[in-house]
C-alpha cells in the first residue's frame, strides 16, 4: 500500500470543503495562471489512467493527481474526458428512458416527508425534527445506475440554479445530503422543476 499523505480524514475534508467552496472561483482563476511545467508528460499514458478510473473502480494514480494539480494541459485533458463521458451517459439515459427532469410540484401536493419518482429515479425529502434540517436522498434503479460509468458524479439542480445534491453515488446507486439553504425545499419546488446531470 503506497502511503498517500495528501489524503484528508473525513472531518478535515468537510471543514476544508466549506472553505474551498467559498473561494472556488478564486481557485479557478489562480489555477488558470499556472505555467506549464518544463517536464512534459506522456499524454497517452495519462489518458489511459484517467479512462481506467472513469470507467472502472481504479483509483487515480498519485502521479495523475499530481499532474492534474500542477499541469494546465493535464487538467484540460482530464476536464474534457469527464465532459465527454457525461455527455455520453446523458445520451444513454435518454435512449433508455431514465428521467433527467422532474415536473414542478403543485403547492398542495407538498408534504413534510415527501417522495417523488420518475422513470429510474426516486428523490426523497425528509424533515428531521431532531436536527431541524431537511435531508435529501436520491436513489437510482439498478438499470439507471448500471447505465452510468462508475467514475461520474451526479448532480440534482433546480430551475433556479440551486444545487440540491451532488457527488459520487454509493455502490447501491444512492446519494444523500442535507439542505443548506434558508429557503425550504417546498418553496423551491413550487417555483422550479428539478433536473439531473452528470459531471
Amino acid at each position: 500500500m503506497v502511503s498517500q499523505p495528501w489524503k484528508l480524514d473525513q472531518i478535515e475534508r468537510e471543514q476544508a470543503m466549506t472553505s474551498s467552496r467559498k473561494s472556488s472561483n478564486l481557485l479557478a482563476h489562480v489555477l488558470d495562471r499556472q505555467i506549464e511545467p518544463e517536464q512534459e508528460f506522456d499524454d497517452l499514458w495519462f489518458v489511459d489512467a484517467v479512462s481506467d478510473h472513469l470507467h472502472g473502480d481504479a483509483a487515480l494514480p498519485d502521479e495523475v493527481v499530481r499532474l492534474i494539480w500542477t499541469s494546465p494541459s493535464a487538467r484540460s485533458l482530464y476536464q474534457r474526458m469527464r465532459a465527454e463521458l457525461a455527455r455520453e451517459a446523458t445520451q444513454k439515459w435518454r435512449r433508455h428512458g431514465h428521467a433527467l427532469e422532474f415536473e414542478r410540484r403543485a403547492a398542495d401536493s407538498l408534504q413534510d416527508s415527501d417522495r417523488f419518482s420518475a422513470s429510474g429515479v426516486t428523490i426523497r425529502l425528509l424533515y428531521s425534527q431532531a436536527t431541524e434540517r431537511w435531508m435529501i436522498s436520491l436513489q437510482l434503479s439498478r438499470e439507471a445506475y448500471e447505465d452510468l460509468p462508475p467514475g461520474l458524479n451526479v448532480r440534482v439542480t433546480d430551475g433556479g440554479g440551486m444545487v440540491w445534491l451532488e457527488g459520487a453515488l454509493d455502490r447501491h446507486g444512492g446519494l444523500d445530503g442535507s439542505w443548506t439553504s434558508d429557503e425550504s425545499p417546498q418553496d423551491r419546488l413550487r417555483d422550479h422543476p428539478l433536473s439531473i446531470d452528470f459531471f
Binding site: 495528501w6 484528508l8 470543503m17 487515480l60 487538467r75
Partner: peptide
C-alpha cells in the same frame, strides 16, 4: 476549469 471535488478529495 476547477477539478471535481468529489473525485479529488484533496482539492478540499
Amino acid at each position: 476549469f476547477l477539478p471535481v471535488e468529489a473525485d479529488l478529495p484533496e482539492l478540499a
